[in-house]
Computed example of a mutant assay.
Amino acid sequence: MQLPTAATLWRAAASFALGLVAGTIGTVMHRAVRPWGLVLCVLLVLVIVLIARAWCGWFGYGASAGGALLAIQVLATGGPGGDVLVPAGDLWGWGWVGGAVLAVIVVGLVPRRWVTDDGPTAP
């Protein structure tokens, strides 16, 4: 296994930050305009994780997926005042968490040729 370069580590750190942003925006906004808020927030996670995988490979994928899921997990718990952004008995909350996890899994299953730029192959 080849060790990651400094550029790859910086890209992974940026991918983690983008994942945090996507998870935070999605957790706050998934109930805004039903059902389109949920759909757009899940698509946001899917796009961010896909871009991170295309940008720096599996390091970016893992970092952005971890950032998004970490933000969702932290924001889904109760706040200091008892406020909850993702209520446990709410189907919209389950749709958000399940949709975000499904988006991360789908991006992990995307073929490598979809996210690499090897150029056209000669016959």
Rank of each mutant, 00 (worst) to 15 (best):
M1K: 06
Q2W: 09
P4V: 00
P4F: 00
T5L: 05
T5V: 04
A6S: 11
T8S: 13
W10Q: 13
R11A: 13
A12K: 06
A12M: 05
F16D: 00
A17G: 09
L18M: 13
A22S: 14
T24V: 05
I25F: 15
I25C: 15
I25K: 15
T27I: 03
V28F: 14
V28H: 14
M29C: 13
M29F: 13
M29Y: 12
A32I: 08
A32W: 10
A32D: 11
V33E: 11
R34Y: 10
P35C: 01
P35D: 00
W36C: 09
L38D: 01
L38H: 04
L38E: 01
L40F: 12
L43C: 08
L43T: 06
L43Q: 09
L44K: 10
V45Y: 06
L46M: 11
L46E: 08
I48A: 09
L50W: 08
L50H: 09
I51P: 07
A52K: 05
R53C: 02
W55V: 05
C56P: 05
W58G: 06
W58S: 06
F59M: 04
G60M: 01
G62L: 03
A63H: 04
S64Y: 03
G66Q: 01
G66C: 02
A68I: 01
L69E: 03
L69T: 04
L69F: 04
L69G: 04
L70D: 03
L70N: 04
I72N: 05
I72C: 06
V74T: 09
V74Y: 08
A76T: 04
T77D: 05
G78H: 09
G79C: 05
P80I: 04
P80Y: 07
P80K: 08
P80G: 11
G81K: 12
G81P: 13
G81N: 13
G81H: 12
G82N: 02
G82F: 02
D83Y: 10
V84F: 05
V84P: 10
V84Y: 03
L85M: 11
V86D: 06
P87N: 00
P87Y: 01
A88G: 11
A88K: 06
A88W: 02
D90R: 09
L91K: 13
W92V: 07
W94K: 13
G98Q: 03
G98Y: 06
G98F: 07
G99S: 03
G99M: 02
G99K: 08
L102R: 15
A103Q: 08
I105P: 15
V107Q: 03
G108R: 09
V110H: 13
V110D: 09
P111C: 02
P111Y: 02
R112G: 15
R112A: 15
W114M: 15
V115Y: 13
D117Q: 11
D117P: 10
G119L: 01
G119W: 03
G119R: 03
P120L: 12
T121C: 12
